[in-house]
Design a protein around this nucleic acid. Structure first.
Lengths: 335, 335
DNA sequence: TTGTAAGCGTTATCAA
DNA sequence: TTGATAACGCTTACAA
């Protein structure tokens, strides 16, 4: 049913070898022959089988991208940027999502190996992970790995991520200067490296002013979305816990906390200030323009791909890289 | 560098054939042997090459999904639902985006054929397309195609989409009853089938009340996003064109039009009512809760996959299908 | 229960 | 400039 090289070669009355050369625009084939082969291929809707091609060439020009999910605009932006960046290069991307599920992450890594991708980009978010042994499969199969926007401590691979430390210190300092004193952070699992960096940065920034940011000031959400953040903030308020500054790990959570505060009769930014990660939601459509930390997705993706392609092509060593992030101040933290 | 079946067979001291049987849990291999092979495969991080497997089996269990882009939550929902639905079935999805670009759409279809996908789901949005000849490549290679959320008139393939006709009639009737009389629709290219269905429905609903919906009452946006819709609405207002009802093809455009109206000093819903397609943006975070038409993505995806898998497995004929959509009335159309 | 060998659709090497 | 042929890594008759 599929149109194959053999079909084309037969109809063009040449050998498969010649047909292959012609179709790949390689030297050493008569121009007339080439045109004849090309025309016949076109007419029959011939498309070379990547399975066969990759098998014989022992490379796929495929990059596997593994992200938590696709319904979060931040992740979607990453996918989009990678697609764009790859249009020039001779690589294609295949995408899979983990749903923050270790089992899925393992399966998708295995699938990438089965696809024989030349390299893998992994956005690490598995909580409480002890030792992602399954990433060993990559090493055993000689497939380079780059971490994007974080990393696993026990896995030796370069990473590319935003300079969260500086960014968090900036936002805390800004809010301190606005008079906020009691901070809470709403984000994903504490065990994730990027969250530990954030905790550390907030703690440092507040320590300067002799303010404590203790462990339970970090509110760990089961999922970093509107609903979970809203519920978590509601519970805090119900328990009578007072805070006047909220920072959230993503835009959706930011609005979740906002919603909880409003329903509890609090005023933003007067009673409580809010800042969130990611500059994704148009301030025009929001009830309140929100202060946020914008990550440079374009640069992050560019460097990640450069690093990955370097290591695919055997250029070592590849160094990890920190990308500056930008504080955007809006009404939600301006008293 | 890659671990292959040959490596496993050698280490287990069996033939490749036996190793293959063992790894695929097929009958006729000694249990002890199977365990030994499995253990060795595990130890070495062996993953079968899909290239080789698909080549020899002449099927990939792969479905190609082609959508306009991934940064729109509606499309992202579709991707997510398909991934979920596929976890049970023995198919995997590969994703590509078209950016509403005919050239890209063609290339991605070709890529799918090269991947030897077993079937293709296409979300058709190419504007002014005359005759998507390149879809012929699919037929020539015996790959079934299903249209999702629309179709191309000249291509013979089943489709699965929302019942836009009924939905649009409902929203128009609702807005008429609220006293709105002069309608504008902001959406993608008029030539797209789904948009023609919408135009026709609006026209019919208004004709009952002797209101005309002429061709230039449909505002064709270059891109269906916040910025383009906002600019289009601004221009309309600048030209002094009066309207008191706006319906938009997606949520983002809805907010674009809203933004333009507010900046022009109009009040919503008093002066102008707005309704949009898709129920994706949390009403809690929006300045104004918006009336919208919610499509049943879950059902749409479920039926699409069923149809596609039926035709992959040779069950004919497969019939096109219309999925009911739901009108959700909120403040933006309640005077 | 196991091994042998052909075949899947390409590319690449070497002769002709 | 072209054609044979081996090789890629797997599955699957078929034979042992």
């Amino acid at each position: 049913m599929k149109v194959t090289l053999k079909d084309i070669a037969r109809e063009a009355k040449v050998s498969q070898g010649t047909a292959s050369l012609a179709l790949n625009n390689r030297l050493g084939v008569n121009e007339e022959t080439r045109q004849r082969v090309l025309a016949i291929a076109q007419k029959n809707g011939y498309q070379p089988s990547l399975n066969a091609k990759n098998l014989s060439q022992k490379r796929s020009n495929l990059i596997g991208l593994l992200i938590p999910n696709i319904r979060n605009l931040f992740y979607a932006s990453i996918v989009q940027e990678i697609e764009n960046a790859l249009r020039d290069k001779h690589y294609k991307m295949i995408l899979a999502t983990t749903a923050n599920n270790e089992q899925y992450e393992k399966e998708m890594i295995e699938q990438f190996v089965s696809f024989r991708v030349d390299g893998v980009i992994l956005y690490p978010t598995i909580k409480d992970i002890q030792n992602p042994y399954y990433l060993d499969i990559l090493r055993k199969n000689g497939i380079p790995l780059i971490f994007l926007a974080g990393y696993y401590r026990t896995v030796e691979a370069p990473h590319c991520m935003s300079d969260l430390h500086t960014a968090l210190r900036e936002v805390v300092e800004h809010m301190y200067l606005q008079g906020y004193r009691s901070f809470r952070y709403f984000g994903g699992c504490k065990a994730i490296v990027s969250n530990q960096i954030k905790i550390h940065a907030i703690r440092e920034a507040l320590a300067i002013h002799d303010i404590e940011f203790s462990d339970d000031h970090y509110i760990a959400l089961e999922h970093t979305n509107f609903e979970c953040a809203c519920k978590a903030a509601e519970e805090l308020l119900k328990e009578g816990i007072e805070f006047d500054a909220a920072i959230t790990g993503d835009a959706y959570s930011g609005f979740g906390v906002y919603s909880a505060l409003i329903h509890a009769g609090k005023k933003v930014p007067q009673d409580v200030g809010i800042a969130h990660m990611d500059n994704l939601i148009k301030p025009d459509i929001c009830i309140l323009p929100m202060t946020c930390i914008e990550q440079d997705v374009k640069d992050m993706v560019r460097f990640t791909l450069d690093m990955l392609i370097d290591s695919i092509e055997g250029k070592y060593p590849v160094h990890s890289r920190l990308i500056p992030a930008k504080l955007i101040i809006r009404e939600s933290t301006l008293r």
